[in-house]
Design a protein around this nucleic acid. Structure first.
Lengths: 167, 167
DNA sequence: CAGTTTGTTCAATATAAAATGAAAACAAAA
DNA sequence: TTTTGTTTTCATTTTATATTGAACAAACTG
């Protein structure tokens, strides 16, 4: 931007942009992602044309490192893709505006690993419990059975939610 | 515990307890709660009889403050309840072993407010967008319509999940 | 009622996480 | 191949969050 003075339209656009970014910052924080990730996605979401990393760092006043890492994460989620622009060797990034990409990526990349870890850990605990002196500890044993049921349920819930997202 | 030396059974129990606590610590962190909260719930989950705050602080080596705050949160979630023990004026806490209490409380107390905030914010953004110069910004307008649909969907998804938890 | 026990709050501290930016790695152009 | 523009990595710094513990308040006791 050359001029610092903005006319009414520009102000209105900037204000809207800011509000959209804020929305995604909050969403990011709600699911445990960095503020910069929310900012990046928010700005891309609010902007029609693809943006370069340089534009992101300048407009959001974030470092190159943060932009690079944030974009990496968002791409791994499938929430952002880069688009080829003729005659420019820089990458140009666009938001994948389908919200399901954002949430689906999050569930796949973040939740699934936790559930998998829990599954193995529960099996290990099972071994430990089996080795406990037989007659008492029945309550603990019952509780663990319960937990295992829940783990299974969680594992099953994920695909269901992913399916719902697709709908 | 009077003696530091443990027999095989005691060791086995301690080991199991530790593993269960670790499981809940991880779960806590996965949904953005403090490690101490996970520890408290984990120990209560692994223990049949109700425990006092004092026992919690000693066995988990956490401060009175952490115990108090963690219990407060867990009670607000409905994941822990205090039980009356005759002839002892201290509170005795038990885990609500139904996992749905834990997850349901979390969804109610943590997710719902976010969604509600998002709803009002989206309406505000709507006003802003309506004020934008009419002919261009159509893409942004379309995207916001999309977002609003998703917010509605999210709002509806919560009760569905809560219902699933109940099943 | 004074003394004691139990529970909470909150300012200070410790710990953990995120952001930065300089340097390295990479990739296209010359 | 060398140069140049771009992106990634990662040690350091900054910021945010969790934990502590002393001070306070509330509830019980004799």
């Amino acid at each position: 931007m050359v001029s610092v003075v903005k006319n009414a339209d520009e102000q209105a656009v900037a204000q809207t942009e800011k509000a959209v970014i804020e929305l995604f910052v909050r969403l990011a924080q709600a699911i445990g992602m960095q503020r910069t990730v929310g900012e990046i996605y928010g700005l891309l979401y609010a902007t029609e044309r693809p943006l370069t990393m340089d534009e992101l760092t300048q407009r959001l006043r974030i470092s190159k490192g943060s932009a690079s890492q944030g974009l990496k994460l968002l791409r791994s989620f499938g929430a952002v893709r880069s688009e080829y622009v003729e005659g420019d060797r820089r990458d140009h990034y666009m938001a994948e505006v389908e919200v399901r990409h954002l949430l689906g990526g999050f569930l796949r990349e973040r939740m699934q690993p936790h559930l998998a870890w829990g599954a193995t850990r529960l099996n290990e605990i099972d071994q430990l419990v089996a080795a406990l002196p037989g007659d008492n500890h029945t309550v603990l044993k019952q509780r663990l059975v319960r937990l295992k049921r829940w783990r299974t349920r969680g594992q099953r819930l994920l695909p269901m939610i992913l399916k719902l997202l697709r709908a």
